[in-house]
């Protein structure tokens, strides 16, 4: 049977993609950020997952406001990156696992999560930056991916509680798959930040650190917040916390924190990283 071996959260700020392409790893601005990642890469090299479920948000590359699903699951043989408007180099495609995707889709709908299935899906920095951070050697490793996209663009956004339960349903879906696969679940984005309005630049370190602790030990404590609460406490784009909660919901076993890093600022954002092991 398939098994979820762990979950990882990371910020996915576009500037990180730019810093990776320019190899700014030793730049003093970037050192406190990039130095968080080697322990995660070592763990991935040792544990060798076959598939990554990448829970992220699209920022207006694949979806526009004409049709904007709350929850979308990729079911493509591969996922393409594309220009997001900044003229950055386009990254090579990411292999999918359509058979597992359809299993997840069937299982989620049976579990009353009426998602949108996508046989074509362009993936933006919310997906690609974490993949570059965790698997700089992804082509040698051959990791397969399933993008799970949650709407954070157009309110109403799904509640933290709903996203946590979506994650639990993803966990049930993976664990009922009859192939021996090792699966890791990524929750990308966060932590506190706000890009728009007179409140741009808002960061709440205290709230972030509380979230980084609770998401490990007591995630349900975070499910009582409304989206409005999170906008107030973590900034308009701090709502990406729901992506972390969906990841955490998928870890249904005994969860232990193996590594973490938190750094302010990267671009406008408080960046957070967590590596969680999920033991059966």
């Amino acid at each position: 049977m398939a098994q979820i071996i762990g979950g990882i959260t990371t910020s996915h700020i576009p500037a990180i993609g730019n810093a990776i392409s320019k190899e700014l790893f030793d730049d003093p601005y970037w050192v406190p950020f990039f130095e968080g990642y080697p322990p995660v890469r070592d763990w991935l090299a040792d544990s060798k997952p076959d598939v990554a479920i990448v829970i992220y948000n699209d920022h207006g590359l694949n979806f526009f406001l004409d049709k904007l699903p709350t929850f979308a699951v990729g079911a493509a043989p591969e996922y393409h990156n594309a220009d997001e408007g900044w003229g950055l180099a386009t990254l090579d495609p990411y292999p999918g696992d359509p058979e597992l995707s359809w299993h997840v889709i069937e299982s989620l709908v049976a579990d009353e999560f009426d998602i949108t299935s996508c046989q074509e899906m362009k993936v933006d920095h919310g997906f690609t930056v974490p993949m570059s951070l965790f698997w700089p050697n992804r082509k040698e490793v051959g990791i397969k991916t399933i993008p799970v996209c949650i709407n954070t663009v157009q309110h109403p956004l799904p509640s933290p509680s709903r996203c946590y339960r979506l994650g639990q349903a993803i966990g049930r879906a993976i664990e009922s798959y009859d192939k021996d696969l090792k699966v890791v679940v990524l929750g990308t984005g966060g932590l506190s930040h706000q890009l728009d309005g007179e409140r741009a630049g808002f960061i709440n370190k205290e709230f972030d650190l509380m979230c980084m602790e609770k998401i490990v030990s007591d995630p349900e404590a975070l499910t009582g917040y409304s989206i409005h609460d999170i906008v107030r406490l973590a900034g308009a784009q701090g709502t990406e916390l729901i992506l972390w909660l969906a990841m955490r919901g998928a870890l249904t076993g005994t969860v232990s924190k193996l590594h973490g890093n938190y750094h302010i600022p990267i671009s406008n954002t408080a960046s957070g990283l967590l590596l969680l092991e999920n033991a059966a």
Partner: peptide, 30 residues
């Protein structure tokens, strides 16, 4: 169960991009 849709307390310097704003801004965003 509380929903931000029913929470009238505005957050200073912050516009919630809800349906009303989506209607208003459709052409610009497109």
């Amino acid at each position: 169960m509380t929903s931000y849709l029913h929470d009238a307390e505005p957050i200073p310097g912050t516009t919630i991009f809800d349906g009303k704003m989506a209607i208003k801004g459709y052409a610009l965003n497109k």
